[in-house]
């Protein structure tokens, strides 16, 4: 079976400070350092020889980053070491951010979710990743740190291209912050793959906020996954719904708009055209469920 061919040194710092210091040596020592969290993606990249770091900095030992805090005002704070599984099985999240739990059910296998982290998934920058569309739809904020200090960016701006993010190589993602879901708001996410749990052919996350009378849509975010180099907002589709009373008819139109905005590519599983069409159907269906949820919220 395949193994990793190129060797590396393995470090396991005990504190964030220590870890950041190590990463900062990247420039001074000209050694290629790479962060490893769960390694569920990284180890595969090393096995395939796509990545050949000289030093691995394991952050799994930084217990200070392993937390899930919910506050009714501040929202949810997810430490970088929180596993997919911790999110999937959290009662607090089930109650307040059900969509995250629903999303997690279809991320790979329990085994991957038991050890892989949400932050690691997001840092990996795979356009097929499930968390990204949901985090963008939920207006998440990403907190990062390096020896130079901390900074934050909106989730929407975090991923730049295929497997490329705003993270500097001396930087760690430390926390994912998800604001409280506004009143009268419904959020839903679905991905489609022929076999459940596989990477999506296309996915869509939709967040809809209604006015107090629960008639008109005051805010909407439609985010597509797997159909571009990053998770992407379907802004034209959003425009179709914004300020209106959402009907089935409008959702079909929004789906069509999203389908045009999407930028999928041919793959072994399906053609570009099919994926576009799929986007239309998903946006329509996910939008409908988000609307129902907003009405009940």
């Amino acid at each position: 079976m395949k193994t990793i061919v190129n060797g590396f040194e393995y470090f396991s710092p005990k504190t964030l400070e220590e870890a950041l210091k190590m990463l900062s040596q990247y420039d001074s020592e000209e050694k290629e350092f790479k962060v490893i969290a769960g390694g569920q993606s990284l180890n595969l990249m090393m096995k395939q020889g796509i990545l050949m770091p000289e030093c691995l900095v394991s952050i799994k030992g930084l217990s200070e980053l392993d937390y899930l805090n919910y506050d009714a005002k501040e929202g949810l704070k997810i430490g970088a070491l929180t596993t997919h599984r911790a999110i999937e099985t959290s009662d607090e999240i089930q109650k307040n951010f059900k969509v995250l739990v629903e999303m997690e059910h279809n991320v790979s296998s329990t085994e991957t979710r038991n050890y892989g982290t949400l932050a690691g998934n997001f840092c990996h920058g795979d356009p097929g990743g499930d968390p990204a569309p949901v985090l963008v739809a939920l207006n998440a904020i990403i907190k990062m740190a390096s020896v130079k200090g901390e900074r934050t960016v909106p989730a929407e701006e975090f991923t730049l291209d295929y497997y490329e993010t705003v993270l500097g190589h001396d930087e760690l993602l430390t926390e994912i912050q998800i604001p409280v879901i506004p009143p009268n708001t419904g959020v839903y996410y679905t991905k489609y793959s022929q076999i459940l749990g596989d990477f999506a052919l296309a996915s869509a996350a939709v967040s809809i906020t209604l006015d107090d009378k629960k008639e008109k849509c005051t805010d909407v975010r439609i985010v597509l996954g797997s159909v571009g180099s990053t998770a992407m907002r379907a802004k034209k589709a959003e425009e179709i719904l914004k300020g209106k009373k959402i009907t089935d008819e409008l959702l079909v139109q929004a789906g069509q708009a999203a389908s045009e905005e999407s930028d999928p590519t041919d793959s072994v599983e399906a053609s570009e055209e099919y994926k576009r069409e799929l986007v239309g159907v998903l946006v329509k269906r996910v939008g409908k469920e988000a609307l129902e949820r907003a009405k009940k919220a």
Partner: peptide, 9 residues
């Protein structure tokens, strides 16, 4: 991953 086999769900 790419060769698709039916899973239990």
């Amino acid at each position: 991953n790419d060769y698709k086999i039916v899973r239990q769900r």
